[in-house]
Design a protein around this nucleic acid. Structure first.
Length: 427
RNA sequence: GGAGAGAUGGCUGAGCGGUUGAAAGCAUCGGUCUUGAAAACCGACAAAGGGGCAACUCUUUCCUGGGUUCGAAUCCCAGUCUCUCCGCCA
């Protein structure tokens, strides 16, 4: 039988064999990489490999012959090989840099488009409440309640951080617990409490490196010389649990959930959402990750996004689900659903979850495989999604459940998590 | 922080400086047998990369990076990780 060829990142062979097709499929992704010279680099690279291997073969036969008279010759060969090898590795690295900066290829049913204007709404649910007063923003509410303190955060830490206090802090915790309980009890996810720090290799696996280093917080540990980063999302650490592994088929699917802080520099979003806690350097998120057989990605994406919307249904928050177009998707995704929740103060929907199938893109970077039919080693499929962003869920609850006097009602499903309280008000 | 032990294929685990890409076992796959299964027996079974339409063939890889040597899984140096013991502290 045919052996499946192993790939890493994008496979140069595939690109070589069908360059036009490859370019075509990527052209809608808004990439700024010059693909044209990769073929000539590849050709030169292979020439060097051939040259090197010719000398290696010669050297090998000398050492096998144990013919002392040829030993001098062998030394010379070593020098030549070393020389060629140096150049070849340099070239190979250049090619790998390019390859590892090329995003995933969109699935064929993903709408084509440049930016968010081409995203397609596919579902809208929940009733948008009519207020008989002007609804306040979450930061106005939080300020009035004296439970969201941005100034204090600025004093201790800097901008884009917040102190959440008193009942609101309790609410944040309740939201997180409710989500985890739902996903573990109803949706078949296993709870994990992972490290919040990842190695550079781990970050590469899910696609945060090398391209998006600017958005990551690097931290310094004394030990070792491997670079380490605060996770921008639990996706990084949860997906990489299968890194460098060959799984048995019956170990799949793996479904895990974790509630973790996430750390992002938010570089390039300077003027955006500067007020309130929509966009922070640090925020809590409940993350869902699925590792599946690579032909099960599509159905798993539906399952995952349904797990996410289940939370919004339970909280009775109005939302809509959209498919991101080719130009708006993240680097590693082949298809993405964004779920957006209604925010009365902004009079529009705002992202509260993003669920992506990455196909085998991350698996190739992580070298995560499983044994398929006839022992063939297949790359796993990976998916990740927020289930949901905790801070933004709190915002949505505050704004949608506010009353005229600035109090916030507690959604029914959260009441067991907030004993003795059915609303949050100034005390 | 101090003292040791170790890192080899999907897993367990041998390995003398020169047919060792690597024994053996397990797992897996194919076959014989069986009504079917199990057992037993026979066979196959690492990856990446290059060349070739193909049969096939070549190179590299025994934690990582250097070094010694005509030749390194095997010797030397540095690093990483894991385990055990002692101390210390959440």
């Amino acid at each position: 039988m045919k052996r499946k060829q192993q790939k890493k990142m994008h496979n140069i062979k595939d690109i070589r064999n069908d360059f036009e097709n490859f370019k075509e499929r990527l052209k809608n992704r808004n990439i700024d990489i010059n693909l044209d010279n990769i073929l000539s680099l590849d050709e030169e690279n292979r020439k060097l490999i051939q040259e090197k291997e010719k000398f290696e073969m010669e050297k090998k036969s000398i050492s096998k012959s144990k013919d002392q008279s040829l030993f001098e010759k062998s030394k010379e060969l070593s020098l030549k090989i070393e020389e060629i090898n140096k150049n070849q590795i340099k070239l190979q690295n250049r090619i790998n840099d390019i390859l590892s900066s090329i995003p995933n290829i969109p699935l064929s049913d993903v709408p084509v488009g440049q930016d968010e204007n081409s995203n397609k709404e596919i579902e809208k649910k929940g009733e948008i409440k009519e207020f008989n007063f002007v609804p306040k923003s979450h930061y106005e509410l939080g300020d009035k309640l004296n439970m969201l303190d941005f100034d204090l955060a600025t004093k201790t830490t800097g901008s884009r951080f917040v102190f959440v206090k008193k009942e609101l802090a309790q609410l944040e915790r309740a939201i997180s617990n409710f989500m985890i309980d739902t996903h573990t009890q109803k949706n078949g996810y296993t709870e994990i409490s992972p490290p919040l720090i990842a190695t550079a290799e781990t970050m590469f696996g899910t696609g945060q490196l090398p391209k998006f280093e600017n958005d990551q917080f690097e931290i310094k540990l004394d030990e070792g010389d491997e670079r380490k980063f605060l996770i921008p999302t639990a996706e990084v650490i949860l997906t990489n649990i299968v890194k460098n592994q060959i799984l048995e088929k019956n170990e799949l699917p793996i479904r895990v959930v974790a509630s973790t802080p996430c750390f992002r520099k938010e570089a390039g979003s300077y003027g955006k959402d500067t007020k309130g806690m929509i966009r922070q350097h640090q925020f809590y998120k409940v993350e869902l990750v699925s590792i599946v057989e690579n032909d099960k990605c599509t159905e798993e994406l539906e399952r995952m996004s349904n797990s996410a919307t289940m939370i919004l249904d339970a909280l009775k928050l109005p939302y809509r689900k959209i498919v991101l177009c080719t130009g708006d998707m993240g680097f590693s995704a082949e298809k993405t659903y964004d779920i957006e929740v209604w925010l009365p103060s902004e009079n529009k929907y705002r992202e509260i979850s993003s669920c992506s199938s990455c196909g085998s893109f991350q698996a190739r970077r992580m070298k995560a495989r499983y044994k398929g039919q006839n022992n063939s080693k297949e790359f796993v499929g990976t998916l990740n999604g927020s289930g949901l962003a905790v801070g933004r869920t709190m915002i949505a609850i505050m704004e949608n459940y506010q009353t005229e006097d600035g109090s916030i009602l507690i959604p029914d499903v959260l009441k067991p998590y907030m004993p003795n309280i059915d609303k949050i008000s100034i005390n």
